[in-house]
Nucleic acid binder design. Structure first.
Length: 310
DNA sequence: ACCCAGGCGATTG
DNA sequence: CAATCGCATGGG
């Protein structure tokens, strides 16, 4: 049995949505994408105006869960028209029309983006795959093995050396620390969705009792969590690709001196941007693109990245 | 051998 | 405070 969504007049592109680096556990084989949503094993394919989903196990809520996960409730056409403000974003929207922001599990998102610092996407995928193989539960479906994403209490009890063996290196200690935090307060992340962007972000990057609540979570990682799992469409993560986009196409939004300093850092590879520079880069972009800045970020990110890598 | 990859935390100045 | 500097790991 399978579920279908009618995509007529709804921009949606499965390849861009699953392949743009917001989720790391999906893989494509021929026309199907394979993945796990919650505890449900899923394969998905797109046939022009339909999204076809086969899943195991199924229940009555499955269709609603999938609709939510893929962001099908959002009026993407309207959102894209709101951020379509210049030639560069216009080209990105034309090329990647149908890219949607997924509403993924905040816990998985938190761990995934702690892994995502100072590395590349294929390595992130490998780290997370290793974590799931070692600490998740095996699920068999159609004679293939899948693994659930491990729970906070399982990772909290893990040995740091074992997590390092998953290829996480210096990130392993952050995983243990954050897992303990969530294991002792399981609803902490979900509660952040009730707060506005700034309050939620302060909780993610802030301190309590003098030390950081979420080690390994800085501004960039926090913005990814807010955008990809906590429904904060105003979040605009600043990464190296977006900085390149800004330098090339949005430098007029900044002081000349500021931009040249950013250029210097990026081109010479001498040091990363400071938190102040991060915040200013972000502030101007959000002023420019508005409440759906996060969508603009994703379109620009993919556009710039694929221009360079292809 | 060296550099880079969707930064962060600890340590300095 | 703000700026600088290791950091684990894998691939090119």
């Amino acid at each position: 049995m399978e579920i279908q969504f009618d995509l007529a007049d709804k921009p949606f592109n499965l390849d861009y949505t699953l392949g743009c680096g917001q989720v790391f556990r999906w893989f494509r084989s021929k026309e199907w994408w394979y993945g796990i949503i919650g505890k449900t094993i899923v394969r998905v394919r797109q046939a022009s105006d339909r999204l076809i989903i086969q899943s195991f196990p199924e229940n009555k809520e499955t269709k609603l869960v999938f609709s939510e996960y893929f962001g099908l409730g959002e009026n993407l056409k309207e959102i894209l028209s709101r951020i379509d403000k210049d030639g560069e974003i216009h080209n990105a929207i034309q090329k990647y029309n149908g890219l949607r922001i997924i509403r993924q599990d905040p816990w998985e998102c938190l761990i995934s983006f702690i892994c995502a610092t100072n590395t590349n996407i294929s390595n992130i995928q490998r780290m997370i795959q290793n974590i799931c193989q070692r600490y998740g539960n095996e699920i068999f479906y159609k004679r293939k093995k899948y693994y659930s994403f491990p729970t906070p209490d399982i990772l909290a009890k893990a040995k740091i050396e074992d997590i390092q063996k998953c290829g996480l290196g210096y990130r392993a200690k952050y995983i243990i620390s954050v897992s303990n935090k969530i294991a002792s307060n399981p609803t902490l992340l979900e509660e952040l969705e009730q707060h506005d962007y700034h309050a939620a972000k302060n909780s993610l990057v802030g301190k309590e009792l003098g030390n950081k609540t979420f080690k390994g979570v800085g501004a960039k990682v926090a913005d990814c969590i807010l955008l990809f799992s906590l429904n904060k469409t105003i979040a605009f993560p600043i990464d190296i690709w977006i900085i390149r986009t800004i330098i090339e196409h949005y430098s007029h939004l900044y002081d000349v001196g500021f931009i040249s300093r950013i250029k210097e850092k990026v081109y010479t590879k001498k040091g990363s941007i400071s938190i102040k520079e991060y915040n200013l880069l972000q502030k101007r972009m959000v002023e420019y693109f508005g409440e759906f800045s996060g969508y603009a970020q994703e379109y620009l990110y993919l556009h710039t990245r694929n221009k360079v890598l292809s």
